[in-house]
Design a protein around this nucleic acid. Structure first.
Length: 314
DNA sequence: ACTATTTGACCGCT
DNA sequence: AGCGGTCAAATAGT
């Protein structure tokens, strides 16, 4: 089991727990603020999981999760000269999702190497690269810029995929978790982690939370997407109607189905989640992909990405 | 001493 | 020429 995958699953487990908490409070009128907070935490966690997933695919040496359809960045030297060929994707992170830190924790350590005032932008853009660039030649980079519209929102553009092994720390944590718990197998996974792929997927809102790669969508290269129809894409189903950080006021979460998970044994949820996540340790991403392709995996809480945008690479 | 950040200068692209 | 992105020396922090 790839360590990063474990981290992703743990992150997803956290998302699930938050979503469950949210559904518990959803219909209590006095808990609106709490719901809002939880929702933003969910967003942060989903985003983190996605970043990790990307990292996994990069460190596997295989096709990146969201790759350039051109596939022209295999050669590092070539890549440095052809910046445009790096896979690029953008996400927006709200301040609350950052949990008080300067930058959202995406599972990697970054080193700032520059800052630049950008024309017509209120805030400067900061440039980061992976701390392991020198030692391991990791070429992952990211740009961070505060949103003009909402200073509490960071627009983060990731470039390139991690080839470093900075997930090692996470691996240790995950492994200890794994050691503490019995694997409950895929039955647990199927019972508790059910992904609905029926998400309404049209990108109608411009206030997207997460923007994915900079290239035209190629289903053959995308680990999570087996169909050209985005509705069948795992990621499309995996964000949520929760909301973008800028539209947090108006969110109602049709999450009640996830209450199923807690029915009968409400206090065992977290245990179940962790078990669920760790029981995946024998699964590869390919396995997940297969499950998704065959529809075996089925979240019961209908998370959907309301906004999904492929950046133009150029 | 080592690592990270800051910041002005430089470079390549349009 | 202007802009965005990167480099690298200076500085700060541990």
């Amino acid at each position: 089991m790839e360590s990063g995958t474990i981290s992703v699953l743990n992150e997803l487990a956290q998302v699930y727990e938050l979503a469950r908490k949210l559904s518990d409070n959803l219909y209590q009128p006095l808990q609106i603020e709490l719901c809002r907070t939880i929702t933003e935490e969910i967003i942060g966690s989903v985003e983190k999981a996605i970043c990790m997933a990307k990292a996994i695919s990069g460190s596997n040496g295989g096709e990146p999760l969201f790759s350039n359809s051109g596939g022209e960045y295999g050669d590092n030297q070539q890549m440095s000269k052809k910046r445009k060929m790096l896979p690029t994707w953008t996400s927006q992170v709200s301040a609350s999702a950052m949990r008080g830190t300067e930058l959202p924790d995406d599972g990697y350590t970054w080193r700032k190497y520059g800052q630049k005032d950008i024309l017509n932008a209120k805030h400067p853009r900061a440039y980061y690269r992976c701390t392991h660039r020198k030692k391991q030649g990791c070429l992952a980079m990211k740009q961070v810029q505060r949103s003009d519209d909402n200073p509490l929102v960071l627009e983060i553009t990731y470039r390139g995929t991690h080839t470093c092994s900075s997930m090692e720390q996470l691996q240790e944590t995950d492994q200890s978790l794994f050691d503490q718990r019995n694997s409950r197998g895929l039955v647990d996974l199927q019972n508790s982690l059910r992904l609905k792929t029926e998400g309404n997927f049209a990108a109608k809102d411009s206030t997207s939370l997460i923007f994915f790669p900079s290239t035209p969508h190629n289903p053959d290269e995308n680990l999570f997407c087996s169909s050209p129809n985005l509705e069948s894409c795992f990621l499309s189903s995996f964000s949520s109607p929760f909301m973008s950080p800028t539209t947090s006021e108006s969110n109602c979460l049709p999450l009640s189905p996830c209450q199923k998970l807690s029915q009968g044994n409400p206090k065992a949820d977290l245990t179940g989640i962790i078990s669920m996540a760790t029981s995946m340790t024998n699964l590869t991403m390919t396995d997940m992909d297969l499950m998704l392709r065959t529809g075996e995996m089925d979240f019961d809480f209908p998370i959907e990405i309301s906004n999904f945008e492929w950046n133009s690479a150029a």
